[in-house]
Design a protein around this nucleic acid. Sequence first.
DNA 1: GCAGATTCTGTGAACGCTCACAGACAACTC
DNA 2: GAGTTGTCTGTGAGCGTTCACAGAATCTGC
Lengths: 353, 353
Amino acid sequence: MSQNADAAQPHPKSRGAARRAMRRGPTIDDVAELAGVSRGTVSRVLNGARYVSPAALKAVERAVRTTGYTVNQSARSLVTKQSNAVAFVLSEPQERLFEDPNFSVLLRCCTQALAEHDISLILMLESSDAERDRVLRYVRGGHVDGVLLISAHSGDPLVADLARGVVPAVACGRPGGPESAIPYVAAEDTEGARQMTRHLVAQGRRRIGMIACPQVVGGPERLRGYRDVLGRRALKRLVVHTSDYSFAAGAAAMRELLAESPDIDAVFAASDLLAAGALAELRRAGRRVPDDVAVGGFDDSRIARETDPPLTTIRQPLERVAADMVDVLLRLIRREPASSRLLPTELVRRESA
Amino acid sequence: MSQNADAAQPHPKSRGAARRAMRRGPTIDDVAELAGVSRGTVSRVLNGARYVSPAALKAVERAVRTTGYTVNQSARSLVTKQSNAVAFVLSEPQERLFEDPNFSVLLRCCTQALAEHDISLILMLESSDAERDRVLRYVRGGHVDGVLLISAHSGDPLVADLARGVVPAVACGRPGGPESAIPYVAAEDTEGARQMTRHLVAQGRRRIGMIACPQVVGGPERLRGYRDVLGRRALKRLVVHTSDYSFAAGAAAMRELLAESPDIDAVFAASDLLAAGALAELRRAGRRVPDDVAVGGFDDSRIARETDPPLTTIRQPLERVAADMVDVLLRLIRREPASSRLLPTELVRRESA
DNA sequence: GCAGATTCTGTGAACGCTCACAGACAACTC
DNA sequence: GAGTTGTCTGTGAGCGTTCACAGAATCTGC
């Protein structure tokens, strides 16, 4: 049989042709050939276009257009060791966090900001230990250039891992744990809480309660702001702690507050969702808002506009938080200096207080 | 100087060593060396582990563990032409859609389902033409193995592009446009709408209005279900169209309905968010719910539990929609046959109707 | 004991790109 | 006109995998 004879002489050309037929798209060599230049020149055009003659530039651009060439990211990554992707890691996402409107804004704005730099966002969940392992392996494996970390609770174990500097990382909100932790971007929670508390005081409220959530990122700061303004008037029974920012927790906390201090005339909830829950509970208890009890929220999320009455709240510039997180991360990736940032908050007056 | 002498003889070995020092992690060759086998054997262990002796298997596994080896996805993708990633494309995401709780559930469940197959989810937004181009180039470039398409409005132009079969794709909800379009997974919207309408009829309601949204995916089906049950009783002035599923649109539609038909005694809103808006407007108009007017929603999203009164609504099995979308997409990627799926809905009775 | 499977292993050649290098040429300076 | 600088170009090597192939070893059944 002629098989052996054929096998004896390898024919790389016909093989290459066969491959080309089943290939996804044109390669850099096809573009080079069509443009009448070399691979190297095409590559230079693709990245930066320096040291390329106008004629060559034009020819390459035309060839790229006519062939519909797209750079093969895998091949590029293989040599540059950059993935042009970052992970958006959602730590401990009980459904709650995921349905938090703040988080949605963050995700959307981060995606947009990254897209402008042609970097793609890979969403990763990290609620179980197994998932954390997966994330860590993924990140360590060099699949992403950086990590945007959205943490629900402070003291996230992933922070420690990330802090070891496997890959640049930025957190949203001040992550708890050792001081050596990773840089973060957050709103000025403490000052925001002060603004709201001062506002309630200015309205003549005497018994101002707080629904706090100190385990959640940003929570301790908001409680501190409330205490800063009220001092000794921040009675113990006026402060109730919840374990998360949820509607149900807000309602339960309000119930407790009403039972402990029936003469309460204002409540500052550490998030709009908590405030919405408090509102529902107040209605059930027959208290009018704001006449009997004023309610203040925090976040200025969509919810604040949809409650009845609409919530007076503290606006966090989440769009800017997202943009700044991306900015800090990109700087870190380029090995430029970058540090944590705190963004100003603003009181938004509506009808609840 | 000795420079020229050095340059004359290339020393690949010291070069390789230098590279190794700055390298991210161990390679397959390092693992092979440590395990005392060849590259090929390690590769076989990594993918499937067939035709590998127990001894070799064990040695490789140990070596992988001690070196902390992770496969370099770029190198692998370069040869397999598979990226192990899929794009989750959010078409026309006016903020609204993004803040839709349904969408959050979908995103979360898809991410989880994909993670189980070690496939990562790349989030892409596609609200402008420029962004659609980007998405298309990205997808065409072979960066992803498939696309999960979440479309707000029917007749999305991306669908047509995707339908040309660049890459496997699955839509959530029936995409409008040519019949030749891509496969989809959706709830049985028509039947769900029938369930709700029948429920309102069974409660003795005589003037049943509808807040419909026929431009949005699923919208036409829900309107059809309402008409199926009511027949000629579905008066023109009892149906108002909105352009999206938003709180504000729901409130505006309710206002219109009250003005046109003051004797209205029930409303079926095509989404919970619309129903929440209607609820707010009814309260403002002094109508009691459900005593004066019954309100039915659709989705059974988180919102339905948080309105006052809580909404009677139609539950869509979104977790299953997400799981099925991923399942269909994976089949398509493996070139197995797979077709569109319709999932059953369920009436959830609460207090609003 | 030997042909034929069957299991197991190592090796070379891609995959498509970037990057360093060297060479060609043009434009200056003295 | 020779040297120096700067711009522009092509080429070879290598990134870390997988895959096809071929060869070695072991097991069948007669």
